[in-house]
């Protein structure tokens, strides 16, 4: 298919000229073949796009329709692509009989606190790395890169013992602490890269005028760095959304499972002996929809944040 796609483009201009001349029947043989190839290429292009669209959309479509379907549609060996009996029962059940609101609240709390902790702990450090010269600066930067390569999951046992000592096992704050490990490193690197691109003259002027470094940092640098901080917070936030392994290590479900994050909750719904697919589907839709909307609205912002550092370097 990849061979056919460019054909479409390259023969694009000459062909209309001939058509305009009103002599389609007298086209040289090569031209006729290329016209045919062009049409075939067009068909292939749309076939490919349609196949990919089905591939991309099918899982999402299926779960949306399943969320509106009754059990008789889901526990059958026949295919149902539309809910035979449209019902909102799954949504009602998800809210009333499963602790869905608790799961969402817990997840928001954990991700929010992680983002906050990441920013608070890292911003002044990032500023120091970007602006001050001191022994061990290079070493710290290298260490940051090395730490970034260390997935928290590898230190599973150590984290478990650490939280045990701090009495934070089975506590959302314990999860925040573990997630902060990745968050601090990422936020620091992100902010530092952004600050590297900001001119230092403003702060120099402020220091000459008698401001303390803290004042310069607080009143000049922080307002300027807001976009970078926002992007770092959002990425940190989103990293926590889907994290399963560490959450599963820290949190043990209580009697009704209300202390879980939503990914653990959805997993427990699926491994439940009842496997309530309809409720699972409804809960998935409720949780995913706002996330996907946020993602699409924030996408532009992400990319502008991306271009400023990292890959663009």
């Amino acid at each position: 298919m990849s061979q056919q796609l460019p054909v479409v483009e390259i023969r694009r201009e000459p062909a209309p000229v001939n058509a305009a001349a009103g002599q389609p029947g007298r086209l040289p043989a090569g031209r006729r073949i290329s016209l045919l190839g062009r049409r075939l290429g067009s068909v292939a292009l749309y076939v490919f796009l349609t196949v990919m669209a089905v591939f991309a959309l099918f899982p999402l479509y299926y779960v949306v329709q399943a969320s509106f379907a009754g059990a008789q549609n889901l526990y059958t060996t026949d295919l149902h692509l539309f809910p035979a009996h449209f019902t909102l029962a799954n949504y009602v059940t998800a809210f009333t009989q499963e602790p869905l609101l608790n799961w969402i609240g817990n997840t928001l709390l954990v991700c929010g606190l992680t983002a906050l902790c990441g920013l608070i702990c890292s911003t002044s450090g990032a500023y120091a790395l970007a602006r001050f010269r001191f022994a061990g600066r290079e070493l710290t930067l290298r260490a940051l890169l090395a730490l970034q390569a260390f997935p928290g999951l590898l230190a599973l046992t150590a984290y478990y013992l650490l939280l045990n000592t701090l009495h934070l096992l089975n506590n959302l704050l314990g999860l925040v602490l573990i997630y902060s490990a990745g968050a601090v490193v990422f936020c620091c690197w992100n902010t530092k890269t952004y600050l590297d691109g900001l001119p230092v003259e403003l702060e120099q002027a402020a220091l000459l005028d008698g401001a303390t470094p803290l004042q310069a940092f607080w009143h000049i640098v922080l307002p300027l760095a807001t976009p970078a901080l926002a992007v770092a917070a959002l990425f940190t936030f989103m990293t926590g959304w889907n994290e399963f392994a560490l959450a599963n290590l820290v949190l043990n479900a209580n009697a009704n499972g209300s202390n879980l994050t939503f990914i653990l909750g959805l997993y427990s719904l699926q491994s439940d002996f009842r496997t309530p697919w309809g409720i699972f589907a409804a809960a998935s839709v409720i949780v995913s929809l706002p996330l996907m909307l946020i993602f699409f609205f924030a996408q532009r912002y992400f990319r502008s944040g991306l271009a400023q550092g990292g890959l663009a370097n």
Partner: peptide, 24 residues
């Protein structure tokens, strides 16, 4: 000043990044 700016980050990283790795 440099130490004060770096301290929150390095202290946090010592506990939640470095210690787990060294302990492992």
């Amino acid at each position: 000043t440099i130490v004060a700016f770096l301290l929150p980050m390095l202290a946090m990283m010592a506990v939640i990044n470095l210690w787990p790795i060294l302990y492992t």
